[in-house]
Amino acid sequence: MGTGLVAAFACVFLTVMVAYFLLTGGEAQLEDSPREAELRALRERKRTIYDNLRDLHFEFLAGKLGEEDYRRGRGALEQEAAQVTRKMEGRA
């Protein structure tokens, strides 16, 4: 009987603690608007292209890439960056 009573008290205490935790606290933060989210995605893409350019340049300096591969890769990435920047300006 004694053990059962302790267990019952423990169960009630646990429930009260959990209920207190659930019922107190603020609101969740809402997300960006779709326009902001789209702009953010474009900025992320541009950042990735910059990272790719940085890696490409480093690999060229390290002697891993020939002149031809480097120029081709850099041109393609610059073109991609230009497209993304134009899209960003169009949406800003």
Binding site: R47, Y50, R54, L56, E78, Q79, A81
Partner: peptide
């Protein structure tokens, strides 16, 4: 460090027409 365009490439150049960049 992150953020700026690498290897002499910057956002204005990248935003310009491709022919201009090359």
């Amino acid at each position: 460090p992150s953020g700026g365009a690498p290897g002499g490439v910057n956002a204005r150049a990248a935003a310009a027409p491709v022919e201009e960049v090359h």
